[in-house]
């Protein structure tokens, strides 16, 4: 193959550098925990129990719900979580 005839990258040419995870907080004291129900079957049952356990420790909980599991969260919900919660718990599978 001629050197002039390079292959063309078929990908979106996204940077391959990994995004570092946010550091986990050492304690939940004083933080707000978001609980996101993605509308998977019985996710609400699981998350409500998690929320109750967190609240029992005196930690503030905010509840969020995606309208459908089929689609990514609407921008308004994403923005509310970013604005109001410090950490988020969600249930991914049924």
């Amino acid at each position: 193959m001629s050197l002039n005839d390079a292959l063309l990258d078929p990908t979106g040419e996204r940077e391959t550098s990994e995004r570092p995870r946010l550091a986990r907080p050492l304690s939940l004291d004083g933080l707000t925990v978001g609980v996101l129900d993605i509308s998977k079957a019985r996710g609400d049952v699981f998350l409500e129990r998690v929320a109750a356990l967190i609240e029992a420790r005196g930690i503030k909980v905010k509840r969020y719900r995606k309208p459908t599991v089929a689609r990514t969260a609407p921008m308004a919900i994403q923005q509310a979580i970013v604005a109001e919660a410090d950490v988020v718990v969600e249930g991914l599978a049924d």
Binding site: M1, S2, L3, N4, D5, A6, L7, L8, D9, P10, E13
Partner: peptide
């Protein structure tokens, strides 16, 4: 086509991936 490529006269802007002369494409 060969001339357009050699003269960098194409509409393509994707990243070039050069592979070795002995590499199987």
């Amino acid at each position: 086509a060969e001339l357009k490529i050699r003269h960098d006269d194409t509409p393509m802007v994707s990243r070039h991936v050069q592979i070795g002369a002995k590499e199987d494409p």
